[in-house]
Each structure stands twice: as structure tokens, then as C-alpha cells.
Design a protein around this nucleic acid. Structure first.
Length: 619
RNA sequence: GCCUCGGUAGCUCAGCCUGGUAGAGCAACGGUCUCGUAAACCGUAGGUCGCGGGUUCAAAGCCCGCCCGGGGCUCCA
């Protein structure tokens, strides 16, 4: 629908003759209307009553601004080259008229289908002349998955489950020795938070040149600076290596899928997330929000029997996309494009699924331990259906035993989604918000949906149980947890730090003055040759200043080189964790550092080794 | 989507209430200093005050509209 909207001192018009067969009946009589908004209107193909209402709603709003409440709807075909058929056009013009009357607008309408003569006087103010286009809103844009709708009215109740198997309603639990669990429960149940400050990690991610918002993209799609890219890359490697060790086969699958693919579209309805949609030629595509599709489609086509179960398949999705509402986004805590390891395991029956589930639970604990996130840093949340709990009490309790502290439990009376049991490790940040890191689900529905089958001992086709696990949660979110944890340390008066293996610079060498740059570089190289990230602050600044900057960069060890060190063959090593300066031979430092990083992936410095050669990305 | 705060130098921000030559610190650049564990000193350069319109002799500032972003709420397999 196209409307040319004119604020007129007056308009005079007179029907001259019918132009089309469907024209309305009208008298060939002159009409005059004063101080009126004239809507020259063309109805186009695809317009319907909803467009008419939409148009009038906006016109009404506009009338308020101009302090006018009188309109003339004037059918005017010449505005469009894509006109609707006259019969439906007339219907919609009438719908506009009705909508306007309903909105208490004084409404006039020129007859439809006539050749008319008119004289018009348009006012001179800037808002007097407006052209507008209204389109029917495409349906798929409004598509909300059934799961999202179901989520909104889900019925569940909350408990605390202790390691000995007591299930206590949340209201009756004594939280006095479980402060973080109390925070987690409060967050999950009441959804009450009131925080004015910025989340500390968003400031840190920029100050430390890890990541930043990218105004040139969609919100929640971040840019990563070299140091952040390095950390992310190390975490990715670590998770992938751990999954390989576990026996999962790494694959790679497309990031976009056909919206109308039959199995995919029914899965979309079972998943509570909003998608990015892309149109390409004739296809509607959506960007994946997890690796499920790609892996399930592979497994659908693969053939395997009970002998190969449990069968484990893994992908590090870079990226998964979820079009979260803009207000939900927060730095590294929640993005619209994020990197998520996703591992599925197919199990022959519930017994095998439970064994595997436990194995993965342990694996996730170990993995977070590798990031130096321990049991004090996260809380366990478990969710299940009432029915599943009733027949698997001991099994569920055995999960809680593994962390040896009470867990928050959500019990669903009915199965709304595709799983009957899931758990997450939740990190509680400085604003007392909880975010899931590791998670695993027991899925009893998707094998059937994707027609994934295995052959059992008797040669019959069976549907396996599917486990969905993100062993670390989103990689970005891991960095968020590390930053928030570091901030907690800082609040307690301790130096904020990263685990050594993730530190962009592990050791910085600082020559006392520029006379010592050369020997300092020699020492730097010696250390670097042992597979460490060591850089050299060769800038002509005072020693104090360079030490200070090393500290603000959270560098774990700082080595000063001057005459004293050259004479004694001892390095002066400043240890960030303790704040102490200790003399030690180069070997001792090497031993200390390699011990601390044993078993973890390594990558070289992502920046020039000389600080004088580095650009500033932020600030 | 709603509420709220904001957009001024690369960064952090002041100036806006009460209209009258656009500021500071840090960073950058040039120089002096050759330095011993969290900020040496001097200087130089750097701005379409988010965009559009209005009011005014005069707008970063006042008014209207728009755009963008943060945070909160809702939501979170």
C-alpha cells in the first residue's frame, strides 16, 4: 500500500466518470473539505486488512502530532505499478475507512473506480507532505517456535537435592552455608536482579584488549583482538583435545540450513531459540544455533550397530547463532554469535546412556578444572521430569554425589522439550547472575525425528538415546567466567589473574635501561625457545612505568635485566600472584613455568615480541 | 519488545541546568632524561560535539524527530 499524505487547507473534488466496471455508485457532485489530511492511496498486490489497520494506526499517530482529526481517503491508483485487483482494493479501502472510524477519526472517502477532478491547497509546513509505504509483514519473521511459547507457560517446581539424596523444597532449605547456591536459586526462580553498574568483565575485556563490541555488525557479534583470539584459540584447542581423548570424532558441518527441510523445521519447533534468517535465491535459510542438525543429518546417513555404541561425535561450532533479544546481550556472557563445543553420544539403551552420562559429567568437571574453575566457582542445576525422577532416583543422586554439595533442582510435571534429564554447571558472577557453562541432556525424542537408527543384536532397527553435551559451554562464556572470577579476586584485594597457560604474555623481560636491551633480548629468546610466550619491553620509558604496565596487563612473571643480573647469572623474577621478587637461575624459572602449564595447549605470542612495535587496539 | 542512561579528541570523561572563541587526563608524535620493580619532565598535533530539522543575531548546550550504543526488565535449549 502506498499513501501520499497531504495536510491541506482545503480540497475540492468531483467524480467525473466511472473508469472501471467495479466502480462504486456515486453522485457527480462537488465536495469540499477544509483543514484535512488527504490520503491518496494505492492498494498493491499482497495487501490485506491488516495492512489497512496498520496504515490507519500510523496515520492516527501522525494526526495527533498535527492536531488534526479529519481525513479523506482518496483512492489514487497512479502511485503504484503493482496494483491489487480492483475488487480486493475496494475491500481494503473500505477496511481503512472502518478502521479510521473505529479510531474516532472524522473520516471522508472519495469514491473508488472513478475519474475525478480535484483542486487542492497544501499547507506549507515541513510535515505537510509525506509519502508512505505499508507492507504486509512477512509471516516467517514472526515465527516463534512452539518450544519458545511452551517455555513461557511451563509448569515446574523447585527443590534442593543433597548428595545423600534428600529432595527438599527450595523454601525449606537452609542456605546459610551455601551462599552461591542461594544466589543461583534466587536468580533462577525469582528472576530478581537489580544492578546499575556495568558487568565488570565488559570493561576488562576491552581494557585487556581481548574482545570488543563491533558497531559495524549486528549487536552481539564481537571483534577479537590478538590477545583475545589467542586465549580463545587455546581454549578451543584444549576442549577439542579433551573431547578427542574422550573418544569423540570431530566433524565439521554447515552453518546454515534450509528452513523448510522437513525434519529441521519440526526440530526448530522444539527448540526455544530465535534464529537469524537469510534469503538466498529461492531458499529460506537459517543459521544454526547448535551443531545438532549437522551431526544428526550425518548420523541419519551413517550405518552402525550396537557394537559401535556409545557413538560419540563432536564439533566446535564457530559460530552458533542465536538471535537473542537485544536487551539480553551482555559482553562475553551472552552473544548472538558464539563458539560452542557440541558433543552428541548415541547410546543403545537407558542403562548405557546413564553410564555415559556419568562419564561425561566427570569429564566436564575435569575440563573446567583445567580452566582453574573449581567446585567453589560453579553451582549444579539439574532439571528433569517427575516421571524420570521417580524411576531413576539413585542415578540422579549419584550426580550430586560427584560434586559433593547440594544442587538446585527443577522438576517438570510434563515433558515440554525433547529431554527428560539435563544438568548444567552455573557460574555466578559479580552481579549475582548465573550462566551455564558445561551442560548435558538426555534426549529421548530426536533419534526418531531424524530417523537415526542402529541395528541391535537381533538385527532389528532401534532408535538410540541421544546425549547432548557442551563440555565447557560457550568459549566466550568461559573467558567471561575467568574475567569475572579475576574481578572477584580483585575485590578481595588479591591480584586478578589468568591461568598461566592462557596468559597472552607469560613472561615479560624488562631491561633496566636501553643499554641492556641486547642482553635482555638474549634472555628473552632463551626462555621463548622453551615454548613460552615471552616478550620484551624495549620502550624508552622508566622502569617503574614499564613494571606498572606489565602489572596492568596481568602478566604472570616479570623479569628485570640490569648489570646485577648479568654479573650474578640470576634473574630477578617478579611473581604477580605473590607480589614477591625473587632471584633465581633461568633454569629454575623455566622449570616452574613448564610445570604450571603441563598438559595444556600452547601457541606462540600473537603480537610482535618487542613492545615498541605493537599497535594499541584500545585506549 | 519495554524501561532507563548515554553518544564531545584514539581512550576515559568535563562543559549542557543558566546559549556567546570546544576543555582535561591518559594514549600518540617530537625532544630531554639512561633510569632497579605500579605513572619522569618539556613540547606538538589531534574535534562535522551521532544525524536531520526548528527556535535564536548566535546552538555542543534549548525544542522536535531520527539513528546508534550501554545497562536493566522480560528471556535464557
Amino acid at each position: 500500500m502506498r499513501i501520499l499524505q497531504l495536510h491541506c487547507k482545503y480540497i475540492v473534488y468531483k467524480p467525473v466518470k466511472k473508469e472501471i466496471g467495479e466502480a462504486e455508485e456515486a453522485e457527480k457532485k462537488e465536495s469540499r473539505i477544509d483543514d484535512v489530511i488527504v490520503l491518496f492511496t494505492a492498494i498493491e498486490k499482497g495487501d490485506d486488512e491488516s495492512v489497512a489497520v496498520q496504515a490507519i494506526t500510523q496515520v492516527k499517530e501522525f494526526l495527533g502530532k498535527l492536531k488534526v482529526n479529519r481525513i479523506l481517503i482518496y483512492p489514487y491508483a497512479h502511485l503504484s505499478i503493482d496494483l491489487a485487483a480492483p475488487s480486493s482494493a475496494l475491500r481494503i479501502v473500505k477496511a481503512m475507512e472502518r478502521a479510521a472510524q473505529d479510531a474516532k477519526i472524522e473520516t471522508y472517502r472519495a469514491p473508488f473506480g472513478w475519474n475525478k477532478q480535484f483542486t487542492i491547497s497544501v499547507k506549507g509546513h515541513p510535515l505537510a507532505e509525506q509519502s508512505r509505504v505499508f507492507l504486509k509483514e512477512p509471516k516467517k519473521q514472526e515465527k516463534v517456535s512452539e518450544a519458545l511459547k511452551a517455555e513461557e507457560k511451563r509448569e515446574s517446581s523447585w527443590y534442593i537435592l543433597s548428595p545423600v539424596g534428600d529432595l527438599v523444597p527450595v523454601m525449606d532449605f537452609d542456605f546459610s552455608t551455601h551462599k552461591d547456591l542461594a544466589r543461583f536459586s534466587k536468580y533462577e526462580i525469582s528472576k530478581m536482579r537489580a544492578s546499575q553498574e556495568m558487568p565488570p568483565h565488559t570493561k576488562l575485556m576491552r581494557k585487556l584488549e581481548i574482545a570488543d563490541y563491533e558497531p559495524g555488525s549486528d549487536p552481539g557479534n564481537l571483534r577479537w583482538y590478538p590477545k583475545g583470539r589467542l586465549m580463545k584459540s587455546l581454549l578451543e584447542q584444549f576442549v577439542t583435545a579433551t573431547m578427542a581423548e574422550y573418544g569423540a570424532m570431530e566433524v565439521e558441518t554447515p552453518i546454515m540450513y534450509d528452513f523448510h527441510h522437513p525434519t529441521l523445521s519440526s526440530y526448530l519447533d522444539r527448540f526455544p531459540a530465535r534464529q537469524y534468517l537469510i534469503q538466498s535465491e529461492e531458499k529460506d535459510l537459517f543459521l544454526r544455533f547448535a551443531a545438532c542438525f549437522g551431526q544428526f543429518l550425518i548420523l541419519h546417513d551413517a550405518q552402525f550397530s550396537y557394537r559401535q555404541l556409545p557413538l560419540k561425535i563432536y564439533e566446535l561450532t564457530r559460530y552458533s547463532f542465536r538471535r537473542e533479544k537485544s536487551g539480553e546481550l551482555a559482553g562475553l556472557r551472552r552473544q548472538r554469535a558464539f563458539t560452542m563445543p557440541d558433543c552428541h553420544a548415541l547410546c543403545s539403551n537407558l542403562k548405557q546412556a546413564k553410564e555415559e552420562f556419568l562419564k561425561r559429567f566427570n569429564l566436564c568437571m575435569r575440563l573446567l578444572e583445567g580452566l582453574e574453575l573449581g567446585l567453589d566457582d560453579y553451582e549444579l542445576g539439574i532439571r528433569f521430569t517427575r516421571e524420570f525422577y521417580d524411576s531413576n532416583r539413585d542415578f540422579i543422586t549419584s550426580l550430586v554425589k560427584l560434586i559433593d554439595k547440594p544442587a538446585l533442582v527443577e522438576v517438570f510435571e510434563e515433558r515440554i522439550l525433547y529431554w527428560v534429564l539435563k544438568w548444567e554447571f552455573n557460574f555466578i558472577d559479580n552481579q549475582e547472575k548465573a550462566s551455564a557453562l558445561s551442560t548435558d541432556q538426555l534426549d529421548v525424542e530426536n533419534a526418531r525425528r531424524y530417523d537415526i537408527t542402529y541395528i541391535d543384536q537381533d538385527g532389528a532397527r532401534q532408535y538410540p538415546i541421544v546425549l547432548h553435551c557442551s563440555p565447557s559451554g560457550g568459549i566466550e562464556r568461559c573467558i567471561y567466567a575467568l574475567l569475572e572470577k579475576a574481578y572477584k579476586l580483585q575485590k578481595k584485594g588479591k591480584p586478578p589473574m589468568f591461568p598461566l597457560w592462557l596468559s597472552p604474555t607469560q613472561i615479560r623481560v624488562i631491561p633496566v635501561s636501553d643499554k641492556f636491551i641486547e642482553p635482555a633480548e638474549g634472555i628473552r629468546k632463551k626462555l621463548a625457545d622453551h615454548g613460552l610466550r615471552v616478550d620484551l619491553d624495549d620502550r624508552p620509558l622508566t622502569m617503574q612505568k614499564r613494571i606498572r604496565e606489565a602489572e596492568t596487563e596481568w602478566i604472570n612473571y616479570v623479569v628485570a635485566i640490569g648489570q646485577k643480573e648479568l654479573d650474578s647469572n640470576q634473574l630477578s623474577v617478579r611473581n604477580r600472584a605473590t607480589g614477591e621478587i625473587k632471584g633465581m637461575p633461568i633454569k629454575e624459572l623455566l622449570k616452574k613455568v613448564t610445570k604450571e602449564t603441563r598438559g595444556k595447549p600452547w601457541r606462540p605470542l600473537p603480537l610482535p615480541t618487542q613492545l615498541s612495535k605493537r599497535p594499541q587496539f584500545y585506549g
